[in-house]
Nucleic acid binder design. Sequence first.
DNA 1: AGGCTACAGTTGACATGTCAATCATCCACT
DNA 2: AGTGGATGATTGACATGTCAACTGTAGCCT
Lengths: 159, 159
Amino acid sequence: MTIPEPGTGRRRTMTRDELRVWRRFLETSEQLRNVVTGRLQDESGLSSGDYGVLLALSEQPEKRMRSSQLAQHIGWERSRLSHHLGRMERRGLVQREPVAGDSRGAVVALTTDGAQLFRAASAPHLRVIHETFVRALSAQQLAALDDAMTALAAHLPAR
Amino acid sequence: MTIPEPGTGRRRTMTRDELRVWRRFLETSEQLRNVVTGRLQDESGLSSGDYGVLLALSEQPEKRMRSSQLAQHIGWERSRLSHHLGRMERRGLVQREPVAGDSRGAVVALTTDGAQLFRAASAPHLRVIHETFVRALSAQQLAALDDAMTALAAHLPAR
DNA sequence: AGGCTACAGTTGACATGTCAATCATCCACT
DNA sequence: AGTGGATGATTGACATGTCAACTGTAGCCT
């Protein structure tokens, strides 16, 4: 990549190189995600959605959480969560319970099976992340990537 | 981020910081993808899959391509492409035609409508990429991101 | 010709996502 | 108490993905 001469000001259109970086970013991040979630699936039968839900619940002291708080915590729409919880409940990973004091609400609770599966899945999952992500980068590259992601996130439109 | 003392050798497990970088990478790349594809959808009614297919076909001299070559070109499984082409064909964006000389095969051809829609969608789409991705990064950050993506891609298991 | 294997593509079943509509309850206000 | 708008969550319709099974044809080999 060539770095444009300074003092030129921001361009209004993209160069070929910039577009190439975008495409590489898009493609590589997707492949990486697929590798990691594919191995999670193979090794423990959990999808990345399952993992996120189980992780959030595991972190709660009571291993349970109000449905909309969970949705907010993991950044999902409530409808998406509702569908997903239905599938997870069918598999016995979580359980929905009524809330004392608000009959509209629902609490999502980790089941014993769910907690167990999550525990078993975690270490291998973290190992895969280490192998495919951390190990692929030098410490400097990792820091630079973090920096770039932070800049991108800061520039994202407000959710 | 703290950079670990050199000469320590590669760790076997992840630090909290490394995991944080992974999560930020995962989350930010997903949000960014959603913003860009969401705007493409809003502005032109094309999904990112549609766009990829139309882009590949547009780049062909004859605006047509063998189905499996297309799948290979954009890195999709044939079954995924087949389903997607069915939907695109229903919308009149592409057309499947028999191949002279191989009655098993199919050629996917861009329709007039498909070509037109793709042309109309391109400039706004590139503008969104510029606004949300390129503009969010300094030239150095962009170069560093490219470098990190290249390292990650090189380290991916063979497709 | 007959038969085997590889190839090209499609199909069906199912998981995952989005969007808009719906349902029930809660709460604030009169 | 009564009602109307917010809130919590689910539902249905549909787009998108994956996987495995299937269909039909091509290309060999004998």
